[in-house]
Every structure is written in structure tokens, then in C-alpha cells.
Design a protein around this nucleic acid. Structure first.
Length: 598
RNA sequence: GGGGCCGUAGCUCAAUUGGCUAGAGCAUCGGACUGUCGAUCCGAAGGUUGAGGGUUCGAGCCCCUUCGGCCUCGCCA
């Protein structure tokens, strides 16, 4: 076998005259009769080969039968090209082939790799090895590698140890649905694949490892989305004797490093922080997209005095009227009209209906000689002073559109937050390539679970309350602030963590409030509660969503684009055809019996 | 569990209100050509319209069932 001396992305004009060997896949070929061009591709790039019938008639004959994706090695001389190809880094040179060796033939590919046109994802997933050969996919894999490499180096510098935790773990029915793995040696018992190494990393702190990290696979058996797979990767971190500021400061530097190394973008540090309440009040959600302003405002106080029945009824029932103010024109004043009546009453109304909103009420702002007012089908239910007051509340300008949703506070926010994001995008309120980071802090420790009539952890049951609120555990748990923090960029949560509870009695109180009985706590977390008893240092940590970060860094909105071998929305791997049925013998060994379908 | 979009040649798509032998570009195969780089030109082959059933004189198109892909609500401590 000819052994390569260079790669297909390497040769430059300085190499002209050198005798070299290249190996790779045939990317494309152009047969001009007596002259024959062949593009050779490997991970590093593409290099043009030339075969001249007059100089090397044997090779010219041999190359006629070579096709796309055949694997070949060639020996030849680097020379200057007649006309350069500015699209390729190697575009100034070519290889005059003196010897060619076919290392492997290839079946005709089911789709064309050369043209980066759209190929159905189904096909790409089935022939993933072909899809991954495409330069764009290679680049995504490389970005992923570089990020994990940067992270490993960074944590190593700071004294963190990379420690593996079990993949075969104990099932905890809280949280997401577990993937179960039957255990052969203890009949009728199951392992669960970890939803996260949460308890293990805390126990590592109890074990005195002080600083831990892991780039770790996590499993949650819930329906996938464009940015969610059942199987995903976290950069998981925990440290002892730290507070919120320690974790935040370590990680905003790391995130800044990611953005600098991959996109050459400087993130100004420190990243701003915003309290949970401020985020929800102004943006309706705890992961606000801060690339544009457009804050939500409450107009319940004005609406309740109007004669508009829809508003009045909602408010009487304890609901709110909240809204946003949006420029009606694309890219701001002067752009073309976008918030047309049709767009609002059809597109946007259908959009918010997905989030449970019954409808959108809208008003158009007019400014007549400094006197603000509003027009629209519901304007008649308000007097002039009220309309002016509403316009002023939004600091609205002539031509702006005000959009309102009347519902419970929670439901109104649930619809308005995505509506705000959609409008920001549709009306082009921000440019491409902008990244607005924010740490969200001061989360409530609990949320009220109406159906179960108890508290639910906002974050998870191991999150510590702030010291000042400890006393409220017995009196007013819903008003307790937690020591949790999320890192958000452009409305996407890319990580979150907390300072953990390190005192057993507080951990027990939390379980009590979550209405987890002592018995249940022992069954599920007994090992953990026991470990807490043996001298647990104060500790805290964070987990960064690796897949989501790579998505943002590579500019794709599809998580499957950043995972080498992803699964479809039904959890299948189209390449291997997992999941699949198993032999009766395997079931017997596990003491399992299948129920008939349906 | 619910809602939406989609499925036609190897690939990407087209086919008027249901109407003649289901078309095009690329790929494939054959031929031509000494400078292309998404080569070009000439020609050929390529179809159970995802599957099954129904309505009709006639179905790619309408109806029902089903399979698959994507988006989404719920779900994701």
C-alpha cells in the first residue's frame, strides 16, 4: 500500500515540485478526454489530481473506471494549477499523478456527497457514515472535539479530576422516566441508566475528591425535540467548599473560552446576572432572550376599568392582562409592514393557541401631535385617557402594535414568552451572530403542585436554600429562595446548577415538604442520606449541556447535527435499527416474559 | 396521549377540477471532448406514486386504516 506523505488539505504553492503520496476518497471527477481531473477528499480537505493521457496513458486508462467514494492512494508531483480555484485552500496546486492504487471500490452512494444540497434526514441517518464524510459534518464533529478538549484542559489546570460514575445505576422514580436495564444476577431487579450523575458527584464530594468533572452521557426516556435527545451529554462539575460566585466565575471564564476559541468572539465578563423574578416579570420566562428588549407589561389595573368584558372577566377571576409592544415594520420603522391584521389574527393567534392561549387582543398605537392613542377593534371599550395610559406604559411609538393576552399570570406568561421570541425573530429585532448571555439566579426553592397538593422542587431536591431563608422551611416554604443558577444564551438554557444541601436534617426537611415519606426516602435515597451523615463538606456544582452548546456554536437548530450517531424522534437509530427484539434465550436468562401487544 | 407538515425514479422535486404512455435536473450506464473545478455536449436505462383497503368508467390526487420522517403541546425533578 502506498503510505500517504501528506493529507488532502495540506499542500500549498511552497510544496510545488515535491513528490508526494495522498490517500482518500474520490470526491468528484471530470473527464475531458485526454485530460482527466479527480478531486481527492479526506478529513483535512480536497486536492485536485490530474491525469494526462499523453504522459501516463496506462493511468489514464486505469482511472476511467474509478467512481465517486472509491478509496485510492496516488503518488505524484505537486505542480501549479493553470487556473486557481479560490474555493479550496489547496486551490493553487494540483497533483500530476504518476501512480494510482485503488484501495477499495465503493457502491454508488444513495445520495450525492459532493453537492451540499438538501438530503432527507431519514436517508442521512440510515447512511450516517456517508453523511459524516461531508465536510460540514466533519467540521461539527471537530468543534465538538475541540470543546471537550478545551474543557478537559481547563478543569485540569484548576485541579479538577475527571472521574467516571456508573452507567448502571439505581432507579429513582422522581424526575424523568428512567431507561431500565434488567439485572441477570438478581432476578426481577433492574438498573436504571443515569438521568444525571447528581448523587454520585455529591458523594464524590463526601469522598474528599474536592473537585470533580466528567463529560458524561445522561439518559431520559421522554419524547425528543429538535434540541433534545433521550441520550445526551453533559459537562458535569462539582466542587467542595465553594459558593455560587465560585462556580459562576469558573464557568463564565470557560464559556468565554469556548466562544473565543470556536467563533473568535469575546464575551465581556462578568456575564450579567438577573433574578428569577425580574426575568419572569419582564420576559415571562426564566430563560429570556436578551438580544432584544420588548419587555412584557401588565395592564390589568387599566383593563379592569374598561368596558371590555373579556378583560374584566379574567381579572375578576384573579387573572391578568399582560402584553408586549412590537414595531409593526420589519427591522423597525421604515421597514415593510409585517404586523398586519391577518398576520396577528391568523398566524400569531394560532401560534399562541399552541401554548393554551385563547386569543390575542391587539391595539395599534397612534401619535397625533404628541398625543398618544390606540386604534383597533377593542379600542372602543377604553376611554381616551385609558388608551393613552396603555400606550405610555409600553413607551410605545406611532405605528407600534400592542398585543395582549388575558389569562392567569402563569398561562399569560406561557404564551407571551414564546410570542415575544417569535416576534423578535419575525420583525428582525436583532442581527445574526449576536450572543447575549445571562445568569439567572435567586430561583424559588419550590413551586406549588396543585394536583398533588404539595411542594415540588424547582431545581432538584438537593438544592440548598439561601442561609437567610432556612427558618422559613417550617413556616413559609414557597417563599424560600434557592442557591440555584442557570446560564442562558439567546433564550436557550445551556447549563444550570446549585449549591447543595450538606446538612442531613435540612435534606430530610426538604423530603418532608416534597411529601416523600421517610420510608420512600430510605428506599430511594437511603445510601445518600447515610453518606450525608459522615461529614459532608459544603459543596455545589453545575452541568453544562454539551449538545446544545455545540448546536449554538455551529449554528444549527438540530441536535442530531451535533451527535455522530443520533436517534430519530421515536428513539430509533436508523443505521443500526435499534431498538430491536431479542432472543427468547436472552429473555429467559433475565427471567423476563413479554406481554402480548395491546 | 394530542395537533400540524411531509412521503412520486438512486437523490431533489413537478404532474391543472380525479382524465392519454407519471415528467425534469442531478446521480447511474454508453459515447464525444486537453484545463476543468456543481465541467460541457449527445444518447440510454431507470417507477407496485411508503403499505393495505375503499369510492369511481377512471385515483399520485378523494375517503379509511397503517408504517415512517420532521415540527410541536403535554412530558423533560
Amino acid at each position: 500500500m502506498l503510505k500517504r506523505t501528506h493529507t488532502c488539505g495540506q499542500l500549498r504553492p511552497d510544496d510545488i515540485g515535491k513528490k508526494i503520496i495522498l490517500s482518500g476518497w474520490v470526491h468528484n471527477w471530470r473527464d475531458h478526454g485526454n485530460i482527466y481531473f479527480l478531486d481527492l477528499r479526506d478529513r483535512y480537505g480536497i486536492t485536485q489530481l490530474v491525469i494526462d493521457a499523453e504522459k501516463t496513458p496506462d493511468i489514464h486508462k486505469q482511472v476511467q473506471k474509478i467512481r465517486c467514494e472509491w478509496v485510492v492512494a496516488v503518488e505524484g508531483t505537486v505542480r501549479k494549477r493553470g487556473e486557481e480555484n479560490p474555493k479550496l485552500p489547496t486551490g493553487s496546486i494540483e497533483i500530476l499523478v504518476e501512480k494510482i492504487e485503488v484501495l477499495n471500490e465503493a457502491a454508488t452512494p444513495p445520495f450525492e456527497l459532493a453537492d451540499a444540497g438538501k438530503i432527507s434526514e431519514e436517508l442521512r441517518l440510515k447512511y450516517r457514515y456517508l453523511d459524516l464524510r461531508r465536510p460540514q459534518m466533519q467540521s461539527r464533529l471537530e468543534t465538538r472535539h475541540r470543546i471537550t478538549k478545551i474543557a478537559r484542559d481547563y478543569y485540569n489546570e484548576l485541579g479538577f479530576w475527571e472521574i467516571e460514575t456508573p452507567m448502571l445505576a439505581k432507579s429513582t422514580p422522581e424526575g424523568a422516566r428512567d431507561f431500565l436495564v434488567p439485572c441477570r444476577l438478581f432476578k426481577n431487579t433492574f438498573y436504571a441508566l443515569p438521568q444525571s450523575p447528581q448523587l454520585f458527584k455529591q458523594i464524590l464530594m463526601m469522598s474528599g475528591t474536592d473537585k470533580y468533572f466528567q463529560i458524561v452521557r445522561c439518559f431520559r426516556d421522554e419524547d425528543p425535540r429538535a434540541d433534545r435527545q433521550a441520550e445526551f451529554t453533559q459537562i458535569d462539575v462539582e466542587a467542595s467548599f465553594v459558593d455560587t460566585n465560585d462556580i459562576i466565575s469558573i464557568h463564565e471564564k470557560l464559556i468565554a473560552k469556548f466562544w473565543k476559541e470556536i467563533l473568535d468572539i469575546e464575551i465581556p465578563l462578568p456575564i450579567r446576572r438577573m433574578g428569577y423574578k425580574e426575568a419572569v416579570d419582564n420576559y415571562g420566562i426564566d430563560r429570556p432572550d436578551l438580544r432584544f428588549d420588548m419587555k412584557l407589561k401588565d395592564v390589568s389595573d387599566i383593563a379592569k376599568n374598561s368596558t371590555f368584558k373579556v378583560f374584566k372577566t379574567v381579572i375578576e377571576k384573579g387573572g391578568v392582562v399582560r402584553g408586549i409592544c412590537c414595531p409593526s415594520r420589519l427591522g423597525g420603522p421604515g421597514g415593510s409592514q409585517i404586523l398586519t391584521r391577518n398576520y396577528i389574527e391568523k398566524d400569531l393567534t394560532a401560534f399562541v393557541a399552541d401554548y393554551g392561549a385563547k386569543g390575542i387582543v391587539w391595539l395599534k398605537v397612534s401619535d397625533e401631535g404628541g398625543k398618544l392613542s390606540c386604534t383597533g377593534s377593542v379600542a372602543k371599550f377604553f376611554d381616551a385617557a385609558q388608551l393613552e395610559q396603555i400606550a405610555k406604559r409600553f413607551d410605545a411609538k406611532n405605528g407600534d402594535t400592542l398585543l395582549f393576552i388575558a389569562d392567569t399570570l402563569k398561562n399569560a406568561n406561557k404564551a407571551l414568552a414564546p410570542l415575544r421570541c417569535r416576534l423578535g425573530k419575525d420583525v428582525k429585532l436583532y442581527g445574526e451572530g449576536r450572543f447575549e448571555f445571562v445568569w439567572i439566579t435567586d430561583f424559588p426553592l419550590f413551586e406549588w403542585n396543585e394536583e398533588e397538593n404539595r411542594c415540588d422542587s424547582t431545581h432538584h431536591p438537593f438544592t440548598a436554600p439561601i442561609e437567610a431563608d432556612l427558618a422559613k422551611l417550617d413556616t413559609d416554604p414557597l417563599s424560600i429562595t434557592s442557591q440555584a443558577y442557570d446560564i442562558v444564551v439567546n433564550g436557550s438554557e445551556i447549563g444550570g446548577g446549585s449549591i447543595r444541601i450538606h446538612r442531613p436534617e435540612i435534606q430530610q426537611k426538604i423530603f418532608d415538604l416534597l411529601k416523600i415519606t421517610r420510608q420512600q426516602a430510605q428506599d430511594r435515597f437511603g445510601f445518600f442520606l447515610r453518606a450525608l451523615d459522615y461529614g459532608t463538606p459544603p459543596h455545589g456544582g453545575i452541568a453544562l449541556g454539551l449538545d446544545r452548546m455545540i448546536m449554538i456554536l455551529t449554528g444549527t437548530d438540530n441536535i442530531r447535527d451535533v451527535i455522530a450517531f443520533p436517534k430519530t424522534q421515536k428513539g430509533q437509530c436508523l443505521m443500526t435499527e435499534a431498538p430491536s427484539s431479542v432472543d427468547q434465550k436472552q429473555l429467559d436468562e433475565l427471567n423476563l416474559m413479554l406481554k402480548p401487544e395491546k
